[in-house]
């Protein structure tokens, strides 16, 4: 029971991180119908920028942890959002109206490009960050096994929930959110009634990248180890989460992320860790075959 609870806590933490990345996939898919394959790389860039921001702040003498966290959060979100914007502007916008698979091929190219760019700029070795948010609670102790809930895990889940609330409000109540929902339904019609479609799509990429940056920050804090290759696998898993929840649906992305996190935690807790990554891929394949619309998605009708 205690072991189960511990895996549950770990899984929810992991799920929060995947969910934040998955939102980027699902939003972009909802609005322009493409799989932004480079999104995993944006998350990796977010992790690197967070690490660099931590080290810079440390060198400048900012040692009060909550202040440092806040500053890193703002810096990472800002700079990563700029990367997300630039990727969209350079690689995807010129292809609007091209044949269907063209943006996906560009996205794969962009993913390779970004991964190798970071490898060349920062080296292939793993980068480490010493534990920044230490401490935690011991919830219960049974059969000699203590269930730990670290402050970092509380921080991750709380921040994710806060971002979710803020994000849902943004989509529901602001003019940007209205414009996004309009573009999602019909881009041409939205343009006709005065929505700036290009700007709305750019904003979608910027928001997605900012959320991915938060996920990158969380991973840097949680594992303390990053390298240039983390984007590929995390990207695939987050995409699986988005598909599982129903691509295009925001609560679906969060639910999917949570489920993937839980499955992964329980898989490595109760089975072998060797096939941990196969579990995510197998779920992706099974969901796409048996329920391509996901758990909360709407079926897509193709019209001639």
């Amino acid at each position: 029971m205690a072991y189960f609870l511990q895996q549950l806590i770990n899984g929810v933490t992991l799920g929060a991180i995947y969910g934040l990345i998955a939102i980027g996939y699902t939003m972009v898919y909802g609005i322009i119908g493409m799989i932004n394959f480079a999104h995993g790389e944006i998350y990796m860039i977010g992790a690197f920028i967070s690490l660099i921001a931590f080290l810079v702040l440390g060198a400048m003498g900012v040692t009060y942890v909550p202040l440092a966290l806040l500053l890193v959060l703002i810096l990472a979100m800002g700079f990563t959002a700029l990367w997300g914007w630039a990727v969209e502007r350079l690689a995807y916008r010129p292809l609007r109206g091209s044949f269907r698979l063209a943006p996906l091929i560009t996205a794969i190219g962009m993913s390779i490009l970004l991964g190798n760019l970071v490898q060349i700029l920062q080296g292939a070795r793993v980068k480490t960050l010493p534990p920044t948010v230490p401490g935690g609670l011991i919830l219960m102790e049974a059969e000699g096994f203590a269930v730990r809930l670290s402050f970092l895990q509380i921080f991750i889940v709380a921040l994710t929930i806060a971002l979710m609330i803020g994000f849902t409000w943004l989509i529901k109540n602001t003019s940007l959110g209205r414009a996004q929902r309009a573009c999602e339904q019909d881009m041409t019609m939205a343009a006709l009634i005065g929505v700036n479609v290009d700007r709305t799509i750019s904003a979608t990429f910027v928001i997605g990248a900012a959320l991915a940056a938060v996920a990158g920050l969380m991973v840097t804090l949680y594992y303390g180890v990053i390298d240039f290759y983390i984007g590929f696998l995390a990207g695939i898993k987050a995409f699986t989460a988005a598909v599982l929840g129903g691509i295009g649906s925001l609560p679906g992305a969060m639910l999917g992320g949570l489920l993937i996190g839980l499955i992964e935690a329980f898989w490595s807790g109760y089975f072998t860790t060797e096939y941990k990554d196969v579990a995510a891929f197998s779920i992706l394949v099974l969901v796409l075959i048996f329920r391509p619309t996901g758990l909360l998605g709407r079926p897509e009708v193709e019209k001639v």
Binding site: A91, P94, L95, I105, T106, L113, N116, I120
Partner: peptide, 20 residues
């Protein structure tokens, strides 16, 4: 060799943008 994959990625993006 280090720049090889970088160039691949770059070429894939540029070809798609200019000559899809």
């Amino acid at each position: 060799a280090q720049y090889r994959m970088l160039a691949f990625g770059c070429a894939m993006v540029m070809i798609m943008v200019w000559r899809p």
